[in-house]
Design a protein around this nucleic acid. Structure first.
Lengths: 213, 213
DNA sequence: GCCAACATACCGACTGGTTGGTATCAATAT
DNA sequence: ATATTGATACCAACCAGTCGGTATGTTGGC
């Protein structure tokens, strides 16, 4: 009856896993403050007793959800195909194509949990803010090496920006694109913004190629 | 004793005005859902009775605050000096310089009210979402003519993007920059993103100039 | 038998919202 | 000039319901 790998197996998820999964969905729809513990429990199909057995507070669930989000997205992007390109610039552009591809389904499905949470909690819940920051910064850090390699290949030693700052800029564009998509209730504006970002990166490196030539 | 222009005079602001001003500050700090009506009243120095005299619900205050935000920022940017440049591209770049300049003080002082609110309310309070969308889209619309003029001046008839989409992209970058600044608890990452955006716009139009030459 | 994993029942504090009432005003009638 | 009217602006107290959190079970595997 019991699954020996039940800790993380989707066939027999623990109340903790169900709550974290419910957190992804509900918090992305209604925000952190707008989501009640009761609501979370109902969405997860567990009771409040289970909630407070696994999380000492609502804030603790917020932190855990942000950390789980880091794991989840980390695995998603690590398995993505854009890493296969030989040229580092192609990997960066491939990443943006992949992000564009992810803009599918309904708004709560493709928006960013930690971007949503940090907006509300940056002053009131520093622990959540730190976990969200770690998630965003950690993801940006996976991009920086490819950007740096692309810069090095073109001798861009004095480009006026760092690989890290460009990596963070991509995240800013994506987060902002989500906000505009929510405001317009349409994904097209987000797609347009990713296209602008891709055009920026392309221009940035083609410019350097011309200069080098 | 009584001020004949008391309706809008800052020397004798009405409870409504005080509540809207308090809304700017408190909602930008704690988010919409995270802000209670009692908190708003305390910050404004009025009672709950006054609140519900002027606003039929908390949501109505959210809508009114978003609309007031549109007026407020509309006046701010209309009076900004970047409109004086003769070259439309200089006006666009001047706008970005002005936005960079506005990134001063504490986080709740320079972040965007409607960007914060729409993130939480896009599904639960359509009236607020619409007001936030009107604010963002309306502001972007003030940028589009200058962008279009800059494109026309360079014969960019087939640039692969519209002036409107670039205007919206600037707003996405700014909104995203605010999120990253909140996560990092530092404005520098937001400044970097605005710099990237300015570099993008510069590249976009210098590229077209080269092609035309 | 025991402990982790849950469920049930409940608490005080706080939530958005309502109540009845007062102070202040302009307009009008006297 | 003054009294009457009626509307607006505002207040303190209060309401029913919801909040995050707790106390006390019950259960099922080791």
């Amino acid at each position: 009856m019991n699954n020996p790998t039940s800790q993380t197996a989707p066939t027999h998820p623990s109340a903790r896993d169900k709550l974290l999964a419910a957190g992804f969905a509900v918090i992305r729809s209604k925000g952190y403050s707008g989501t009640s513990v009761d609501e979370l429990c109902a969405a997860a199909g567990v009771t409040k007793g289970a909630f407070f057995h696994h999380f000492k507070s609502k804030e603790a669930l917020g932190v855990a959800a942000a950390n789980y989000w880091s794991e989840f997205t980390g695995a998603l992007f690590a398995a993505a195909p854009y890493h296969d390109h030989a040229d580092p610039l192609d990997r960066v552009l491939g990443y943006l194509d992949f992000r564009r591809l992810l803009l599918a389904g309904e708004l709560p499905d493709y928006t960013c949990l930690v971007g949503t949470m940090v907006q509300e909690t940056y002053l009131t819940a520093p622990a959540i803010r730190d976990a969200c920051h770690a998630s965003i910064a950690g993801h940006a850090r996976t991009l920086a090496p490819d950007i740096q390699a692309a810069m090095d290949a073109r001798g861009m030693t004095d480009a006026g920006f760092t690989a890290e700052s460009l990596a963070l800029h991509t995240q800013a564009v994506l987060q902002g694109a989500f906000i505009l998509a929510k405001a317009e209730d349409s994904v097209s504006v987000a797609i347009d913004s990713v296209d602008h970002l891709k055009r920026y990166v392309t221009l940035l490196f083609s410019q350097a190629e011309e200069k080098a030539a």
